[in-house]
């Protein structure tokens, strides 16, 4: 029997390569029961591979992974009875109706036909799809498909749910709708492990965040902890011209956290206190002609991400540019 202290998910020194490319390089992490946990990382960090190993779809090359105490390789059938996975693309039959898809999933978990029908109806209700339940999935919008996919992953009443980039490609409204559902799941005591490239998503949803980089755990903690640990505040400087930009950048040296030559902007980590900020401004711009504006702000997860991985979160940048 599992004890109350068994973690929902626990990996130790997990390793996995594909054709000589190392994807997981000794990942050790732990997800507490009943929590929402985000795996955050750039593309290729190993998020999806981790989820696939935990969901028994891929075997690790080395190390161990346990879900509710069950080894994902040796006890994979037991693991399968406690988990569900909603992958990056909604795994649904386009030419079955929403209700038929859910009823089929329910029957595959061993529920008799009548009960399966009831469970499908309940889930359609809960995911705001009751009106669309009789329509074929091919007619659904992207947001509806994701909701149905999530509903399908709840059919077997799992204790641990893996969501692989659940909101990638969704419009902001559908995304918020999905966040609400995830919040409800957590409220019902289900453990949710989700991967995401959206910092806002991790910030809003997750109790704790694991930042993956190069197949390893780069940092772990609550969003607040991570922000404090990796630069609680940022001082943004706007320079007069390129000469001043170069001069101030040189004076700051490796204290520069981020630079944008095109906009003549530099960023420095700071604690945000008056004396420190004043001292810094005097130090890098002694004749007070170089800095035209400055701005102190609280660090975001993007800053954390940048500090840990050396690159900005790709998804959020894309968003800022267009969507």
């Amino acid at each position: 029997m599992e004890t109350v202290t068994t973690a929902a998910v626990e990996t130790v020194a997990l390793r996995k390569s594909f054709g000589g490319v190392v994807v997981l390089d000794g990942l050790t992490m732990r997800v507490a029961r009943g929590s929402v946990h985000a795996l955050l990382g750039p593309n290729g960090a190993g998020k999806t591979t981790t989820v696939r190993i935990l969901a028994t779809l891929a075997a690790p090359d080395g190390g161990t992974a346990r879900v509710l105490g069950h080894d994902v390789v040796r006890d994979r059938r037991r693991v399968r009875r406690t988990i569900s996975l909603a992958g990056q693309h909604a795994a649904l039959d386009d030419h079955q109706t929403g209700a038929e898809n859910l009823e089929m999933m329910a029957r595959l978990t061993g529920v008799p036909r009548a009960a399966a029908r009831r469970r499908a109806a309940d889930l359609l209700d809960r995911f705001d799809l009751a009106a669309a339940g009789g329509r074929r999935v091919v007619t659904y919008s992207g947001g509806m498909r994701r909701r149905l996919d999530l509903a399908a992953s709840l059919v077997g009443q799992p204790s641990v749910i893996f969501l692989d980039e659940p909101t990638t490609g969704l419009d902001p409204r559908s995304r918020r709708g999905l966040w609400e559902v995830v919040g409800e799941l957590a409220g019902a005591g289900v453990t949710v492990l989700l991967t995401t490239q959206y910092l806002e998503e991790a910030d809003r949803l997750a109790d704790r965040i694991s930042v993956l980089h190069g197949g390893r755990l780069a940092a772990e903690g609550t969003a607040t902890e991570l922000k404090q640990r990796f630069g609680a505040h940022r001082l943004e400087l706007t320079l007069r011209d390129t000469d001043r930009f170069a001069e101030v950048a040189r004076r700051l040296g490796d204290r520069v956290a981020n630079r944008d030559p095109a906009r003549l902007e530099l960023e420095v980590s700071t604690d945000g206190t008056g004396p420190r900020v004043r001292h810094l401004l005097d130090e890098v711009d002694p004749d007070r002609r170089g800095i035209t504006r400055f701005h102190v702000r609280t660090a975001t997860l993007d800053d954390v991400f940048l500090t840990l991985t050396g690159q900005s979160a790709p998804a959020d940048r894309r968003e800022a540019a267009g969507v």
């Binding site: 399968r80 009875r81 988990i83 569900s84 909604a90 795994a91 039959d93 999933m105 399908a152 992953s153």
Partner: peptide, 13 residues
């Protein structure tokens, strides 16, 4: 290719 088999496998089908 569309993920249906993977879902079924995680459901122990």
């Amino acid at each position: 290719t569309n993920g249906v088999v993977e879902r079924l496998r995680t459901m122990d089908v």
